[in-house]
Design a protein around this nucleic acid. Sequence first.
DNA 1: ATGTCC
Length: 460
Amino acid sequence: MNTHGLIYADRQLIEAMAADATLRQLAGVAALPGIVGPALAMPDAHQGYGFPIGGVAAFDPDQGVVSPGGVGYDINCGVRLLRSRLGADDLSAGQLTRLADDLAAGVPAGVGRGSQVQLSDKDMDQVLARGAAWAVAQGYGDTGDLEFCEAGGALSPADPQAISPRARQRGRGQLGSLGAGNHFVELARVEHIYNQAAADAFGLTAGGLVVWIHSGSRGLGHQVCDDFLRRLAKDKEAVHPPERQLVAAPAGSSIGRQYVAAMGAAANFAFANRQLLTHRVRETMFRSLAASPRDLGLGLIYDIAHNIAKLEEHITPEAGEKRRVWVHRKGATRSLGPQHPEVPSRYSAIGLPVLLPGDMGTASYVLAGTTIAEAETFGSAAHGAGRRLSRKAAKKQAAGRDLAAELAQAGVVVRSHSRGTLAEEMPAAYKDVAQVARVMDAAGIARLVARTVPLVVIKG
DNA sequence: ATGTCC
């Protein structure tokens, strides 16, 4: 190892990490060349492809690497949160059911499912280069949305030409679609406020209705990851660690630059995707409730990327030097404290919103970023509950059960395109998100702001 | 996560 690992967890969470390959994978990350500061594991960390999900690592731009396994297959998988002017309890059961039906009909979802938008090659170039800004320019959303997206909703560098024809083809009909797996649209009620000043700044009120949107770069990002893993596996320039899935490219090498440019373009596809989904959700809700945008609100609180590598400037942990580093956040969220220049001015006294979606039957958390995270974790925090059961084990446990009925009984209206997805995503498949939130608050890498509970969930 | 194997 070139550095040590640093894990944020309580006893139970670290025992779960010890029971799978998380710690071995973290040691593999710590052995990569040019790593700066420790190899970090957030409290939701679990084993992933080569590099733990919930892992964070920073690399020197000259001596270090970029790694597709350190970003993940779903490039710029991420989460958005919308506030509303509605009280959740003002909606009748009938209105909620109708919203569930209308959103299920209006939001394209499911494996391989496409969108209503068919992109020309020229449009696709613009999506890949400009991300959410392209979507807003096309009328999908408000100009104001961009201020509340990480990186303004577009990564740079991003080169449309670095994307393979196959990746482009897979993405062509998928912009504005949810996908499957853990992706969702959720209407939720703000159940508890922990920090009133932060909640006020974020526009969250107790009892208020909010909307969570979780999606990524669909088949396009998946293909980009696959393309570069294959190319790196047979590239002499590449770094080939004993854990073969952790193959990496020197950040300054030709293939490293190509990966970064392709990853940025795929990330932009994901930003545009969430922007189109947002537009579709707003339109559907306005129509379903026969309400005006003025009455409903649905302004964007924030859009975070939780599968990404970015060249960022940080004061390095322990050494305390100001350096530009390639920060890999794989299943990890950015956490920046008050007054940081990348925090929108509306939130500058509070810190960046840290969005922590839980499972579809329990709760999700909104937290605020901290200067402690800036100092210790390259400005990073956890991204969710973390899996307790593999997809396969979850399906086995769900056999013979009617999960939609169980969730309805618990007050959550679920619409899913696939029974399999519902089984893989059942609440018992996830660890306790409250535990993850508590660890972050106790360690100071993010501060609790609010808890929301699900009312309506749309799944792939 | 994923046209769940080109």
